[in-house]
Design a protein around this nucleic acid. Structure first.
Length: 449
DNA sequence: TCTGGGGTCCTAGGACCC
DNA sequence: TCTGGGGTCCTAGGACCC
């Protein structure tokens, strides 16, 4: 008979803010936020910033007065740093159990099924991550992923607000060690909106039906939930009851779509600037596509004005173009994106955002049984060119080799190097910390006293 | 005036996640 | 003045087919 499953969720506390603090100890104990691309809004907050009332997603211009008033520090997002720290964290966390599912940049599920001493192991893993990387984490353990997430929430709350929960639940919370009464008590103290899978929309509806807590939700009749809400929420109810419905995914499935989209640093009006931006986005998307060994069967381009500027005339359109045969060639993908842009562009608008989505992704080699006719001339050459492009950019950084298609010629793009120049579409990043772990020229310097 | 039933495929939109 | 980016899954409804 199969053992009942046991899942752990390892989650970095305020991950981006904590990464910044590893290399800049002066930031410890201070209210700190990390800003989105373009320094637009807060996407991570230290506990001190949360205590100031800074909301997730709060626009910077609404909270920047706290810089003077309360000593709030704001940094531009440094994804090169966070990505590298994430890899290190995942390596240490993987040692906790016999399987790892990397769920996001700062979270992974670990399969603990059948392992003794789960809580002690988890505490050891936490301490290693803290000591080796300087990153604080909390670990939740439960019989389903949803309950492991909930346990993690309790472990964090117990640490942040001592007294709100028994102290032994701080940092590591293992629901499997508790009695049914104790578990119910914890679920009852958890607002329904904190449950994984319950978003703002469902939370409001549930509350209107008198469902306030995770315990209330767990006690609903699954069939009723399915009828009144959805199969997704029904699954959440069963998971809260201890029935594992969401499987463990060791190897990430290849992505079904790949998107590269950005808001611009300033409004963009010129076609030429949009061409540059989409050349950039298309190239990034193509590199991601090759990294997972797929080809795209279609490509979507969108351009839009800002929904936050009522004084600007609104314009938002997208266009999907098929790729026959499916392709992973940067030149072809960017060429197609620029073709779509040509059809979408209307002069006279202040564009705020654009993006490229690769759709209809297929893995492996092109299917031979489908008659695409003879392979396009030079396809072997295209493959070698892409390999060279990826190799150079791997070695020297993603911006080393670039397409020269930004000019207004309108012809097929060609490979080349471009001088980095500041353009309106490029994002603002005025407060970025050094890329300490991924750039030789930005290494941390230590001066002997 | 009457006007079946069921299946599949595709797409757009909604909800959710971090 | 200034509001992120990148994903997944489900559902409803239309088109189409027999």
């Amino acid at each position: 008979m199969a053992l009942p499953s046991t899942f752990a969720l390892v989650d970095g506390n305020n991950f981006y803010a904590s990464c910044e603090r590893v290399f800049e100890p002066r930031l410890r104990g201070r209210p700190l936020v990390v800003l989105s691309n373009n320094d637009g809004c807060a996407i991570a907050r230290s506990d001190e910033a949360k205590a100031l009332g800074v909301a997730m997603g709060a626009p910077w211009f609404r909270i920047r007065h706290l810089e003077q008033q309360a000593g709030l520090v704001a940094l531009s997002a440094n994804f090169a740093l966070y990505g590298d720290m994430s890899q290190r964290l995942m390596e240490v966390a993987a040692e906790l159990g016999h399987g790892q599912e990397i769920y996001s940049i700062d979270e992974c599920f670990i399969d603990l099924t059948g392992l003794p001493e789960a809580s002690a192991r988890a505490r050891q893993t936490r301490e290693r991550i803290q000591r080796w990387l300087g990153l604080p984490t909390c670990i939740g353990i439960g019989p389903t992923k949803t309950l492991a997430k909930l346990a993690n929430h309790i472990a964090k709350s117990a640490e942040r607000k001592p007294g709100s929960y028994p102290a032994r639940l701080a940092q590591v919370c293992n629901l499997l060690e508790l009695t049914a009464r104790q578990r119910d008590w914890l679920l009852q103290r958890t607002p329904v909106a904190e449950v994984w899978g319950v978003g703002p929309r469902s939370a409001a509806q549930l509350q209107a039906h008198g469902v306030q807590t995770a315990l209330d939700l767990q006690r609903l009749e699954p069939a009723l939930v399915r009828q009144r809400w959805s199969v997704v929420l029904e699954r959440t109810v069963r998971e809260l009851g201890g029935l594992a419905c969401i499987g463990f995914e060791q190897a990430p499935a290849p992505k079904q779509q790949i998107a590269v989209t950005r808001s611009f640093g300033q409004p963009v009006t010129e076609l030429d600037d949009l061409r540059q931006a989409l050349t950039h986005f298309g190239s990034r998307a193509a590199a991601k596509l090759r990294q997972q060994g797929s080809r795209a069967g279609a490509l979507l381009v969108f351009i839009r004005t800002s929904p936050f500027r009522p004084q600007d005339a609104p314009y938002a359109r997208s266009l999907v173009l098929p790729l026959n045969p499916p392709s992973d060639d940067t030149l072809r993908l960017v060429g197609t994106a620029l073709q779509a842009l040509q059809a979408l562009y209307r002069p006279g608008y202040r564009y705020a955002k654009a993006g490229v989505l690769l759709l209809d992704l297929q893995s492996g080699q092109p299917q031979a049984e489908l008659d695409w006719g003879a392979p396009p001339a030079g396809s072997g050459r295209s493959q070698r060119l892409m390999q060279a492009l990826d190799a150079v950019n791997d070695r020297f950084g993603a911006q080393a080799l670039w397409l020269g298609s930004a000019g207004g010629g309108g012809g097929a793009p060609t490979a080349g190097c471009t001088e980095p120049a500041v353009r309106p579409w490029q994002m603002r990043q005025q407060r970025r910390s050094p890329r300490y772990t991924t750039r030789w020229d930005e290494l941390l310097q230590v001066h002997a006293g």
